[in-house]
């Protein structure tokens, strides 16, 4: 069992009577990219705000780096870089000045500014006022700010929000390179499964304030149960024949489907069809996409993709 960077227990946040975050037990291991996934309004941002001490939990505890956030908040925040929802910036300052205003607080050497600027490739635009930046550039500046204090944990809330496809790709590559190159643990939230699928090693799925799945991305993929699709000449007759021979199959849109069939089971069905002189055109495996699993888990709610 590797070291836990974030561990929440029964984390709950109430706004009035509604529990926006409901008994969340989040566990993030060192060196992982933890994809925090959920539809809009599921409680992702609220959870992240509590992790960063911006909001106070109604109930439950948060431990980060083994420390209680209520007791050692500043020591924790010292090791965390964050970007919450929209990038924060001072419009009247240039990119470099923005970083300088933060650098003074973090007490890191001035050279670090050039380093983070080059990581997010803003060196050329460093002398321009940020109010003239595109959203993508602001987002990159936000990442640069988050990286400024050499954090051990990076919390990024919807970092690809509002970015164009090339910006998204860039951001993804950047995020993926962090744990390898700098040993940083990352929590990245998104409402897009494809995003998480392409970068995360661990996944936590939250919906209506509850975590409904938390494990490695491989475990999530394994849940993608497969079925075998058969295309034959006379579907109706074939289905009836199979039924009379004791094989239960599904007839959907002129195809026969075998759910969770073992190899032997599939072989027996095919054999039976051949013996009854049906022409078998195709035998295909149909895997459920992660998309469908996600929709199943979250109960087909919220606008997705």
């Amino acid at each position: 069992m590797s070291e836990l960077i974030i561990e929440t227990k029964n984390l709950t946040k109430k706004f009035g009577a509604t529990r926006v975050v409901n008994h969340v037990d989040m566990q993030v291991k060192k060196g992982e990219i933890y994809g925090f996934l959920g539809p809009n309004g599921a409680g992702k941002t609220t959870t992240i705000r509590m992790l960063l001490g911006l909001a106070r939990p109604s109930k439950g505890s948060i431990h980060m780096f083994g420390k209680d956030i209520r007791k050692e908040k500043l020591a924790i925040l010292r090791k965390v870089g964050s970007l919450v929802e929209y990038p924060s910036y001072y419009g009247h300052l240039t990119a470099r000045e923005n970083l300088e205003a933060v650098r003074v607080l973090l007490d890191v050497p001035k050279s670090r500014i050039d380093e983070v600027l080059s990581i997010v490739r803003l060196t050329k635009d460093a002398k321009r006022p940020v109010k003239g930046f595109s959203l993508g550039m602001k987002q990159r500046l936000g990442i640069a700010t988050a990286l400024l204090g050499n954090p051990e944990l990076l919390i990024l809330d919807e970092p690809t929000n509002g970015l164009d496809p090339s910006g998204i790709l860039e951001m993804r590559e950047l995020i993926k390179s962090m744990p390898k190159e700098h040993g940083i643990t990352i929590v990245v939230s998104s409402h897009l499964l494809s995003e998480i699928d392409q970068m995360a090693t661990q996944v936590g799925i939250i919906t209506k304030g509850r975590i409904i799945f938390q494990d490695s991305i491989h475990k999530l993929r394994e849940q993608a149960s497969s079925s075998i699709k058969l295309t034959v000449n006379d579907v109706e007759a074939a289905w009836k024949t199979l039924l009379s021979n004791g094989f239960t199959t599904d007839l959907v849109q002129n195809n026969i489907y075998i759910d969770n069939g073992t190899d032997d089971h599939v072989a027996a069905i095919v054999k039976s069809l051949v013996e009854h002189d049906f022409s078998i055109y195709r035998v295909e495996e149909q895997k459920k996409s992660l998309e469908e699993i996600f929709l199943e888990l979250t109960g087909k709610e919220g606008g997705l993709l």
């Binding site: 960063l52 911006l54 500043l74 919450v84 929802e85 924060s88 910036y89 933060v102 973090l106």
Partner: peptide, 12 residues
């Protein structure tokens, strides 16, 4: 510019 968010997550 959302500065509060950033400022309040600084170790201060």
């Amino acid at each position: 510019g959302g500065g509060w968010k950033q400022l309040l997550t600084m170790p201060v």
